[in-house]
Each structure stands twice: as structure tokens, then as C-alpha cells.
């Protein structure tokens, strides 16, 4: 029972990370590194939280979160692709903007108004039959809708990236944009598209936290998840299945850390809380030089 609960929590904790990392994989495959994922997640989180709070519609909250993150993603794309600004610096700015904007909205709308601020959350939907499978059933098939969505999104995005014309163009534009240009494909539009897709998924991953994980917003509630998703991408060798598995690994670290806190061991909980971050460091060290990164990653394209 303990184990089932632990694994079930693993899947729940992994879901937002996987969303964000899938998006970032697309973006990096197209040659753009967005280290501003944390900021985009915060934008998504505050937008979803506010929207759900006032409208009561979870669906609307999720859509609003994605659109808001895409708006900021568009700003990033404009700077990183069109203006050819340094992607790392621009991404860092995005993180600060996300932190600032989300904190500002939260204080103005909620903290100072004394509104009781719990929101509705996504319910677990046990799938008929499937959820009754012993062991795997409760772990995989008694989850909320976004978890199921990640199960669907993973194979679809993997398929698009590897088996379609669009995916081929994305993979090529991150390696050799000039070659892509010389066969008449739109380098900028491909990059914009991938950045916006990544932003939408980062918004979704951020929205997950207040409306599926906790039922409220706290300032900086993403707590580095955007950065963890960022490290998952090279760890996974820029592949979608790899990102999925990496997400589960980090999900397990989060779930374990929560369990251990509840278990009241003689270890300070602050120490346990560092578990996911220690894992991140370990992963970075282990994944060093394992696969080659896209050749044109972080290199703005200059036509002509």
C-alpha cells in the first residue's frame, strides 16, 4: 500500500515536469534554449489560479494559463529569434519577470484583500476497468485529467518529432539552419512555433501546481521545477521518451521526499527537501557529454 501511494504520487509529481520538458525539448531541438521556463511556469500558475478563483472553471483556467505563458513566450521569441539577443540573458530576464509579475498579481488580488484563497482542484478520475488492474491500476489510472493528458501527449509529441515532415524540419533547424533556409523552409517561423509550443506547455505545467497539486498559490511555488525540467532535457538526450522517464525519476524524488517527511524520521525536513535538487546535480554530472546537443543550440540565425 505504501509503495502504491508512493508511486502514484511519483506520477502526479512527474506530470508538470514532463509537460515543461517536452516543450523545452522541442524548443532546443529547434536551436533555442529557453532558461526562462521557471518564469513561464509562474505566469501559468498565477493565471490559472486567478482565473479558476474568479470563474470557477478549471478548463478556462488551464487555457488562460497557456495563453498567458504564450504571450510572454512570444516576447522571448521576438528577442531571441528576431532581435538575435543572447538567449541565456533573455531567459534569465524572463525568470525574473515571471517571479515579479506572479508575485505582484498575487499580492494585489489576494494577499492584501484577505480573501480566503483555496480554489477548486482537478479531481482524480478512476478509469473504468483499467483502474482496477492490481498494482498498476491505482498508480496509473486513478489520476487527474492532466496526468492522462501527459500519457497521450508523450507519444504524440514523440511521433511528430521523429516521423513527420514538421518534426524533421524542427530537428534540422536546430542543427544546420542554413541548410533549412537553403531548401526554402522558414527558419524563423519554425523557431517561433517551437518557442510558443514550449511556452504553452510551461504554462500548463505551472498551472498544474495550484489547481492539481496544491489548491492555492504561494509566491515562488514552482520552487525550481522549471530549472529541473531544463536539466531533464540534456539528461534525456533531447528525446521525448527520455524526458518522460526523466520526469518519473524526478517525480519519485519529490514523492519520496514528501513521504519521508511524513514518516517523521530523525532527519531535518529541510534536508529531505533538497533531494530533488541533489538529484538534479547528480543528473547533470552523469549526463555530461552523453549525447551531442543540437549544433545550433543558442546560436541565432543570420540570413544571407
Amino acid at each position: 500500500m505504501e509503495l502504491i501511494a508512493l508511486l502514484s504520487a511519483t506520477v502526479r509529481m512527474a506530470t508538470p515536469l514532463i509537460f515543461v520538458a517536452i516543450g523545452e525539448t522541442y524548443s532546443e531541438r529547434a536551436g533555442v534554449m529557453n532558461i526562462g521556463l521557471e518564469g513561464l511556469m509562474l505566469i501559468g500558475a498565477i493565471t490559472a489560479y486567478t482565473a479558476v478563483f474568479f470563474t470557477g472553471s478549471l478548463f478556462f483556467g488551464l487555457i488562460a494559463a497557456m495563453l498567458a505563458a504564450m504571450l510572454f513566450g512570444f516576447g522571448f521569441a521576438y528577442l531571441a529569434v528576431t532581435i538575435k539577443a543572447n538567449q541565456i540573458v533573455t531567459g534569465a530576464a524572463l525568470n525574473m519577470i515571471g517571479l515579479g509579475v506572479s508575485g505582484f498579481i498575487y499580492r494585489v488580488v489576494f494577499a492584501n484583500t484577505g480573501i480566503v484563497s483555496a480554489v477548486k482542484t482537478l479531481p482524480a478520475i478512476p478509469l473504468p476497468f483499467l483502474s482496477e488492474i492490481p498494482f498498476a491500476g491505482p498508480i496509473l489510472f486513478n489520476q487527474n485529467a492532466l496526468v492522462y493528458f501527459v500519457f497521450i501527449l508523450t507519444p504524440i509529441t514523440a511521433f511528430v518529432l521523429n516521423k513527420t515532415s514538421l518534426g524533421l524540419s524542427i530537428r534540422a533547424v536546430g542543427e544546420h539552419p542554413r541548410a533549412v533556409d537553403s531548401v526554402g523552409l522558414p527558419v524563423f517561423r519554425l523557431r517561433y512555433g517551437c518557442i510558443l509550443f514550449a511556452a504553452a506547455l510551461a504554462g500548463l505545467g505551472g498551472a498544474y501546481l495550484p489547481i492539481a497539486h496544491a489548491n492555492q498559490f504561494v509566491e515562488g511555488l514552482t520552487a525550481g521545477r522549471g530549472f529541473i525540467a531544463l536539466t531533464m532535457v540534456p539528461f534525456a538526450g533531447w528525446t521525448i521518451p527520455g524526458v518522460f522517464l526523466g520526469g518519473l525519476l524526478f517525480g519519485a524524488a519529490y514523492a519520496l521526499q514528501l513521504r519521508l517527511q511524513v514518516a517523521q524520521l530523525a532527519i531535518a525536513y529541510q534536508f529531505l527537501q533538497t533531494l530533488p535538487y541533489l538529484l538534479t546535480l547528480a543528473v547533470l554530472i552523469l549526463s555530461r557529454n552523453r549525447t551531442e546537443q543540437p549544433k545550433a543550440l543558442c546560436v541565432p540565425y543570420e540570413a544571407g
Partner: peptide, 17 residues
């Protein structure tokens, strides 16, 4: 103008569909 990490066929088809 070839992408080294892609196959011959992938390079040929790039941008064609």
C-alpha cells in the same frame, strides 16, 4: 548544406512535404 545528424533520405526530403 547537409544536416550531419540526419540520414541521407531525411536530408533529401527536408522541406519537400
Amino acid at each position: 548544406m547537409l544536416v550531419p545528424t540526419l540520414t541521407v533520405a531525411e536530408n533529401v526530403i527536408l522541406g519537400m512535404r
